[in-house]
């Protein structure tokens, strides 16, 4: 079994298994935890809980004016990075084929050149995020292994994927294998690090919205 066979077969199977195990464990253990009762009485003008949840999520999509200036770079860069990741992951034909192999569904792909361009911008955005983390004194102080390793496992698939599509630096079979192994690393780390926010961001922001709504705070 060569490296590519290993990456396409056992490595991906193991990584997907760890991913599914970890996500199921973390979500269930979170949702089934005993909830603390909110002692604050529900306000008379409170909207239904789901409205509060949607408002809470929507409100946090962009910072309030007093904070906008200070957090503009982080916010915009965050959007660039996340949209870039989504376009690259869901738009490249090779990725759609990978997902079709898993779920049986497919959709039209975007031009490869466009994806490569977006991948370069995404890499730049990731580099900027790291630079800010390393240079901002407060951010640097509160950064942990989780932050840096999560950055690394996000950066590697984009970088190796770009090299594989461009056929740069090594034979294509090696590049493809390294790319797939980097994806496996991301999948394995996903449930146990801050990448889990891909699921939990909807929960935390909605929960905040529900709590605020109950107390009559209009978001």
């Amino acid at each position: 079994m060569d490296l590519l066979d290993f990456a396409r077969g056992p490595a991906l199977t193991a990584a997907l298994s760890v991913f599914v195990f970890g996500v199921a464990w973390r979500l269930l253990s979170l949702f089934l935890l005993p909830w603390a009762r909110d002692p604050s009485p529900r306000r008379a003008d409170a909207r239904p809980a789901w409205v509060g949840a949607v408002r809470g999520f929507a409100r946090h999509l962009w910072p309030r004016k007093p904070f906008a200036r200070a957090s503009m770079l982080t916010t915009v860069n965050g959007y660039v990075m996340h949209l870039g990741l989504a376009i690259v992951f869901f738009g490249l034909a090779q990725h759609i084929l990978f997902l079709r192999g898993l779920f049986g569904i497919a959709w039209p792909n975007l031009p490869s050149g466009l994806i490569s361009g977006v991948a370069v911008v995404t890499l730049g955005s990731l580099a900027l995020a790291l630079a800010r983390r390393l240079t901002h004194p407060v951010l640097r102080l509160i950064s942990t292994f989780n932050d840096y390793f999560t950055w690394l496992v996000t950066f590697l698939p984009i970088a190796t994927g770009l090299l594989a599509v461009s056929h740069l630096g090594a034979p294509y079979p090696t590049l493809l294998a390294v790319h797939l192994l980097s994806v496996s690393l991301l999948l394995i780390w996903f449930p146990f690090g801050k990448l889990m926010h891909a699921f939990l961001v909807f929960v935390t922001r909605s929960e905040t919205g529900i709590a605020y709504n109950r107390r009559g705070v209009v978001l």
Binding site: D5, L12, T13, F98, G101
Partner: peptide, 8 residues
């Protein structure tokens, strides 16, 4: 099976 699809 396309090259980018898993084989396991």
């Amino acid at each position: 099976r396309p090259l980018s699809a898993n084989t396991g």
